[in-house]
Nucleic acid binder design. Sequence first.
RNA 1: GGGCCUGUGGCUUAGCCAGGAUAUAGCGCCGGGCUUCUAACCCGGACGUCGAGGGUUCAAAUCCCUCCAGGCCCGCCA
Length: 554
Amino acid sequence: MFQEKYHQIERVLRACTGEEDVLLTTGGDHADLASTIAFKLAKKQKRPPHQIASDIAGKLSRNPELGDLQIEAVGPYVNFRFGPSLLAEAVREALEPGYGKLPAHSERVVLEHTSANPNGPLHVGHIRNTVIGDSLARAFRKAGYPLEVQYYLNDMGRQVATVAWGLDHLGIAREEGEKEDHYVARVYVAANREIQENPGITEEIDHLMQEMERGDPETAGKFRAVVSLCVEGIKATLAALNASHDRFVWESDFVRIGDVDRVIERVRRLPQTHEDETLWVDLSEQGFEKKYILRRSDGTSVYSTRDLAYHTWKGRNYDRLIDVLGADHKLIGAQLQATLKLLGEQPPEIVYFEFVSLPEGSMSTRAGKFVSADDLIEEVTAKAFEEVTIRRPELPEEERRAIAKSVAIAAIRYDIVKVSPEKSTVFDWKEALNFERQSGPYIQYAHARACSILEKAGEFEQAYRYETEHEVALARHLARFPVVVEQTVKELRPHHLASYARELADLFNAFYHYNPVLKSEGETRSSRLTLVDAVRNTLKESLETLGIDALRSM
RNA sequence: GGGCCUGUGGCUUAGCCAGGAUAUAGCGCCGGGCUUCUAACCCGGACGUCGAGGGUUCAAAUCCCUCCAGGCCCGCCA
């Protein structure tokens, strides 16, 4: 409804003013939509803007095509407000299962996110990638795109080689009940400490990497064992976070099947490519002063080479490539894009997010200095369980545990997704454990409330008469959900969804306190119940797009 | 030194790309509200030179320039 109305008003304003850009925006508190076109025309017509606005409003008010729209000039602004029948239509649409779904696109999208090195558990920095990536993935599916989500597994890097070496030489046993990825991290930290004391080990690790690249079966087996072990743990964490990947792509496969050799051959034919002891691309014309090295002097490939092969493969199998990467990848990401362009391949769109640090400084897996996602989930779940137990002591423990789990993931995911990706953040336990307003559980609570009202109401006739300011504000807000989904995929910024869901919960809570539902009567009761149902559905759809469980009771 | 990002009340944050109507919200603070649909809630109040300066414009948190502060990057690591 909202989009149709937007485009219709835009069309009519164009016809009325003769201007191409009619400066139509959302009007905030003042209106559903508003135009500042009068300012622009004031200059051309040499008349005061409020007169022009008033003229336009007068003309449009007599236009029957616009239907149930209140049009008013307020000073220099032309304001449009949805009338009762449009609000009814908005609520009717919001009741539909899957509300917010946009018309299907045929463009096949591949979205890569998380892709953390398999040398330890995901930490609170990695899961910013996971939460942004998974929320975007859900938004893309909601926006009607066929989508595949991938995790690129760096299974032949120095980190993995270091762990493989550590397992062979340090005799560290896995502890009882220790999660795979945490065990791998322990070996990794110990191996790094060993290297510090005895730098000669670096040569042994270099040798392992060369053997791996050569395809030596014994070495490959060792690497695969390390990575498989670690990935088991990582997958469990991702599942706990409600994040999923359709495919894990192993970096070494591109070496094994010859794609890396093929891409090197193609790069070699570029005029920008130089070969001395290494093979490198001169990207200075593209604005990069650093050499983009693709083959070491010992003949082995580097991460960038394999990444080039991976993206070439993606470009051939999908129409649109999206990567979610930490801000530390900005340079290498831009070099990758530039080189793919030189090769005539499709470069990825890259969503960068800035760093998450700890109050005491940057995180480091190597130094064992990080807060793991598993510890975070455990702490937040424990706090959530306490809360549920205080509020709902009568519920069986099993049910309280299930609620606590969902509440914890809601708190964690929302806390991360609500902040714009370009903002660097400092991880804060107090914020993570806060379940009040502007949190995931706050929104879940609004949803549970709506469910509870509907359950008590039983059967009711649908009706659509909205008069109080709270009813009208809710109906207006419901209409915007599909626009927010559209905006999220257009800008690749999932935090819009987070703001939207919170605003909807805010409006619903205010409505709840001022407009009794079950105690009202007749058409008012039916209309309010219908509205509550529409809010419930829209909250559910927006929560699920954020990867948060829409609990019916909490 | 160079590149990218950020700077909005004590703290966190939306708005900035597509300039317009009293700058969004939370935490914290002060005050009020649970025999009434779940108080993980609601209402009221105090708190802002939108980092600083200049420019463009009828109009700047938003665009441009300079400066300051913080983060990230500048490896034959990934």
